[in-house]
Design a protein around this nucleic acid. Structure first.
Lengths: 135, 135
DNA sequence: CTGTATCCTCTAAGATACTG
DNA sequence: CAGTATCTTAGAGGATACAG
């Protein structure tokens, strides 16, 4: 049985993905770059927040997404969860020191996003219009 | 017709998503945080690269994903594409100045990821083991 | 070499309802 | 209030074949 160059390349890809998955950065970038991670971290900058409070602060996230984002961050040791067994129950989320070590990056991303939002919007429109004309 | 508090909250969410989508940061974070964006940008740090070269540098990405990532970055004005009409055809991708303005952030993310990869791996294992025992 | 088009699968994520 | 479970669906992404 023979392979084309294309097929060989596909095999190489599979091997690569199976073993190292991605470059060192890649693994964590996925964890950090989830749609809501940055927003949750920013919401916790000022201090511990209750679950219900986070929902108000980040109305774009469904409860399901919020919970799963929080679980994921907890698993990675970026936030901690403290439960107070009252009725009704109460839970507070807080950045760990490792979570706080991400703050400089998160702030920079926020800053960059705010500074470039306008221009990127313009680029997109220009690009899309060009697609309409010639695409 | 009456609504429960839960339903009202869901409605509020929809409105929010429909109008502002997300906070200023959110819009762009999605663009930046795609699985391959960081890797492509890092691959272009040293200078322009051909399509085939990028495939070699980032073997984890299928051609489809690579192309669509490149298109997305081009649309946002973060990279430029120059085509040379020879046979076979040749295309080179290069960071624009706006793309280069992302480099400090990308480097910091890479650095953070490398520094914390080990500890986060440990946290995950501990967390997962706990789940097995008590979850 | 660089890309597009097709098909197909599988997961992310929303809606909803329910438990402690 | 905080969280889980279930159902369902849109879309991301892989495999493959083809085109300029």
């Amino acid at each position: 049985m023979t392979y084309t160059a294309e097929q060989k390349r596909n095999e190489a890809q599979k091997d690569y993905n199976a073993s190292l998955a991605l470059c060192p950065a890649g693994q964590l970038l996925e964890a950090i770059s989830s749609k809501w991670v940055t927003l949750v971290i920013l919401a916790l900058v000022e201090g511990p927040q209750r679950h219900s409070n986070l929902r108000k602060t980040i109305p774009g996230a469904s409860q399901k997404m919020l919970t799963s984002t929080l679980r994921s961050l907890e698993r990675d040791g970026l936030i901690s969860r403290r439960i107070t067994v009252t009725t009704p129950i109460r839970t507070d989320y807080e950045l760990t020191s490792r979570g706080r070590s991400l703050l400089p990056i998160v702030f920079e991303m926020k800053k960059w996003a705010e500074e470039n939002m306008h221009d990127i919007g313009a680029s997109r429109m220009a690009h899309d219009r060009h697609q309409l004309d010639f695409g």
